[in-house]
């Protein structure tokens, strides 16, 4: 597990990769050819520092994958800026991808099924100029396989994807990302397709890479418990807006936004056995995230929020920062009503 270094240490050097106030609007057409704009991400910022893990948490459609793809420069930003090591990021290309690598959710479809591991990893090494001769390729592929705990490496080097399990494939995918020797990894739900019993090993592997090799990692997930396990900081997104962020224990143990609270209270927690779900007697409708072609004005959570007031419908609130670096965008704090969030128990939430 990564050690919980104070946030201030990390901010001394510029972030390896940062998104500064980025937005992404997609233009789509419906069946009738009418144009619509999907406001996928609005004014999001995230900074990735050496050796640290930031988790981006939210439901599907919250914009977390879009934000990661802007960081990877798969999608150009609609506004805002991507910064690499303190400077405006160079255009997408080999030079950029040598610094920033993405790991996808589904290892079964992200690897070429026709080739052996030797080729899959060797090609990356050759293309990026890290290995030239056959002997160099073999030596480096073996070392990569050892780094991702695919041992004995000599056995795995000549396997094809179909001869491996999901966990092993995801390790190959991680090894392929490492082969370019990046400084930043962007993991888009890297464990959600894997079997439960092997997820932890992949999380531990990612944690070790950050700890020992100083990689910066963005970990995208909908599973807040795994975010807590792996990361140093958490950012919570809802319907394209970043609603809360900060050190993980602050955010998870004392959320400052009603949506974060709802998300945490909704996550299965075995320690809650016997209470919770079974005792929920009222038929409740907690609503669903909005359609992003016509999102609600102001804070997009307001239609589902038990604390919604006029300001919430009018404008998205500014950031309120708390003692330990935790921050939230919620009108409750702007109106001095922070205490209400703590007083309300989860059962009284919507």
């Amino acid at each position: 597990m990564t050690t919980a270094a104070p946030t201030s240490d990390a901010t001394d050097e510029p972030a390896l990769l940062a998104a500064v106030d980025v937005s992404k609007h997609f233009t789509v057409r419906d069946q009738l050819g009418r144009k619509a704009t999907v406001r996928a991400v609005e004014h999001a910022s995230v900074a990735l520092h050496r050796g640290r893990v930031v988790a981006l948490v939210g439901e599907s459609g919250s914009g977390k994958t879009t934000l990661a793809r802007m960081l990877a420069q798969f999608h150009p930003v609609s506004s805002g800026e991507i910064r690499l090591a303190g400077h405006r990021a160079p255009p997408a290309g080999r030079g950029y991808f040598r610094q920033v690598q993405l790991i996808f959710q589904d290892p079964f479809s992200s690897l070429n099924t026709l080739h052996k591991v030797r080729h899959i990893l060797g090609r990356v090494l050759r293309v990026h100029g890290h290995a030239h001769t056959r002997a160099e390729v073999e030596e480096q592929v073996l070392s990569l396989l050892n780094r991702v705990n695919l041992t004995p490496a000599e056995e795995f080097i000549d396997k094809r994807p179909r001869e491996m399990s999901g966990g092993q494939l995801q390790r190959v995918a991680i090894a392929r990302a490492l082969a370019v020797r990046p400084t930043v990894l962007l993991g888009d739900e890297p464990i959600s397709m894997l079997d439960v019993s092997i997820r932890l090993d992949v999380l531990n592997l990612l944690a070790r890479l950050c700890d020992e090799e100083g990689l910066a990692l963005l970990y995208i997930t909908h599973d807040i418990a795994s975010a807590r396990y792996l990361c140093d900081e958490v950012q919570v997104m809802y319907a394209g807006q970043t609603v809360e962020g900060g050190p993980k224990e602050a955010v998870i143990q004392s959320p400052k936004h009603p949506y974060t609270r709802l998300l945490i209270d909704s996550s299965p927690d075995p320690d809650r056995t016997g209470r919770g779900l079974r005792d929920q007697d009222d038929a409740e409708d907690l609503g669903e995230p909005p359609n992003l072609t016509a999102p609600p004005d102001g804070c997009r959570f307001h239609p589902r929020c038990p604390f919604a007031m006029d300001d919430c419908r009018r404008a998205f609130p500014d950031r309120t920062t708390f003692a330990d670096g935790q921050w939230a965008h919620c009108w409750l704090h702007q109106h001095g009503r922070s205490a209400e969030l703590d007083r309300t128990t989860s059962k009284e939430l919507p």
């Binding site: 597990m1 079997d195 439960v196 090993d201 418990a225 807590r228 998870i252 927690d269 075995p270 320690d271």
Partner: peptide, 18 residues
């Protein structure tokens, strides 16, 4: 294999092998 949401965090290990 399921990290806790509130209990103290410890290093967990998955089940080795497949």
């Amino acid at each position: 294999a399921f990290p806790p949401l509130h209990a103290p965090l410890t290093k967990l290990a998955g089940i080795p092998g497949s």
